[in-house]
Amino acid sequence: MRRLRRLPRLRGLTWLVWRQNRLAFWIGIGAALAVAAYAIVRHQEMTTAIAEGHLDACRGTTVPAGDCSHKLNSFGQTYQFPMRRPLQAMLALPLVFGVFLGGPQLAQELESGTYRTVCTQSVTQLRWFAAKLLVPVVLTTLISGTIAAAMTWWWRPAGSLLGGWFPWWQWYPYDGIGPVVVGLSVLSLLIGVTAGLILRRTVLAMGATVVVSAAAMYVLESVRGHLLPTALATVQHPTGTAAPSNAWVLSEGAADATGRRVPDLPSCYTADDYTKCLVQHGSTGRWAEFHPSSQLWPLQWAETGLCALLAAALAGLCVWWIRHRPA
């Protein structure tokens, strides 16, 4: 209790919203700290293993043979495999915030009528709404941010060592690390709050939050590659890829000697010498549009910004709804 007394005392609506959600907040804070502790341990183990196995020399290796291949493979078995399920589970984290914190936040008050008790104290409906929104948003940012930072810390040594063997742009780890976790969580929270305000039924709002948040995440996943301009590369060898190792290739194809894009030549698949056939038909090069691995964080921030924009739009919709259709 002495530790608590040193915290600034919560006042007014902030206190009320904290008090209403404190169980959820403490569970979230506890879970975030547990994940952080676990990630620190796993990160430590991994860096130790990398140092002891002199794996640094193998960084960036792409040839699937030799000593490095064997070493990286066994490193992956021990350290990357156990990381996959948690990273996949991170996809559900935004939904947890949306369904359990966002959905009931207003719906429960509207359903039970308790908003009438609060909104007839000396506070306006809009100030009440602001508190009901901001306190959970701050807590969601803190909790999801801590978890995202922990997962990033855990993923980082494996991701940078394994490179293209553990591509950064796949839905895991991408959805489980970095600022996008926070962005998706806040967006899902706002979807839940909005659903609760409009539907006014707790269970209905929670269900709608799952559906709408999942749809939003699907759409964001499909547009995320186009949020930033791609890099274009053309090389003059008829097979292989024009993109560097561990790049997120969005599209690629054949090119001629001037670098112009030419259609693939399916007839060459049956030729005795595939490469020679391609060259004979003028398909001497390859082109690729891609995001290099250095684009991971810029892409993540762009998507996070988009999430924040959508969340702000939903908050605006809520304010409009409260002003024009007061309960």
Binding site: S112, T120, V123, T124
Partner: peptide, 12 residues
Amino acid sequence: RQHTAFLSQEKA
């Protein structure tokens, strides 16, 4: 608001 109190039917 400051000088008015309201008790709703359901006294939620």
